[in-house]
Amino acid sequence: MGEHKTHKKTVISRFKLSKTPMTKLEKNNMLWIYLFLFPSILVFVSFYLFPIITVVTTSFTTWDGINSPKWVGLSNYSWLFHNEAFIMSMKNLLFWSLLSAIPHVAFGVLIALILFKKPFGGNFVKSVFMIPNIISVAAWAIIYKFIFNNDFGILNRIIRIFNPGFKANWFFESPYAFWAVTLTWLFYGVIVTLIVLNDLNAIPREIGEAAKIDGASGWQVLRNIYLPLCRISIGTSIILAITSRVGMYEAIALTTRGGPGNDTMSLSLILVKLIMDMKYGSANVIGMVMLIIGIAILLLINKLFRMNESVY
Rank of each mutant, 00 (worst) to 15 (best):
V192C: 12
A211R: 04
F187I: 05
V190S: 10
P204V: 01
V181H: 11
T236P: 07
P164M: 07
I161T: 13
K212P: 01
F171N: 05
I154K: 02
L200Y: 00
A177V: 06
Y226E: 11
E209R: 04
K167E: 13
E209I: 10
W219E: 00
P228M: 13
I203Y: 12
I232R: 15
A210C: 08
L240I: 14
I232K: 15
A251W: 09
I225M: 04
F162P: 05
S174Q: 11
W185L: 06
N156S: 15
S217C: 10
E209W: 04
N169Y: 07
R223M: 01
I252V: 15
K212M: 12
F166K: 08
V221I: 04
I225Y: 06
P228Q: 09
I207D: 01
N156Q: 15
A177I: 05
A180N: 12
S174L: 08
R157Q: 13
M248K: 00
S244V: 09
N169S: 13
L194R: 00
F171K: 03
V196I: 06
L186Y: 12
V221T: 12
P164F: 05
P204M: 01
V246M: 13
A202I: 00
V221M: 02
I239T: 06
I158V: 14
N201H: 03
D151A: 10
L197A: 06
I195L: 15
W179D: 07
A202R: 08
L200S: 00
A241L: 10
E173Y: 05
Y249N: 13
L222G: 01
L227S: 00
I158A: 10
P164I: 05
S237E: 14
W179R: 08
F166M: 07
N224R: 03
N169E: 09
N198P: 08
V192A: 08
E209K: 10
W219G: 00
F187A: 05
T182V: 03
V196H: 09
R245Y: 05
A241W: 08
I159R: 04
I203H: 09
P175T: 05
I161V: 11
A251D: 13
S233H: 03
I242V: 14
I232P: 13
I154A: 11
P204E: 03
V196N: 00
A180T: 13
D214T: 04
E250G: 11
I239S: 07
A168G: 13
N150A: 15
T182W: 00
I161D: 02
W179Q: 09
I161F: 14
M248G: 05
N224G: 02
Y226Q: 11
K167Q: 07
G247M: 10
E209Y: 11
I207Y: 02
I238F: 00
V196L: 02
L194S: 07
G218L: 04
W185H: 07
R157V: 01
R223V: 03
N156K: 13
W185E: 08
Y188W: 12
M248N: 04
R245D: 14
R245G: 08
T182H: 01
L222V: 01
F171H: 07
V246T: 10
T182L: 01
Y249V: 12
I147R: 06
L240V: 12
I207R: 00
E206H: 04
I161Y: 09
I158C: 05
T193W: 05
I147D: 02
N163Q: 03
V192I: 10
F152H: 14
A216I: 01
N150I: 11
W185N: 03
F187D: 00
K167G: 00
Y226S: 10
V181Q: 09
L183F: 12
A177S: 12
A177H: 01
G247V: 10
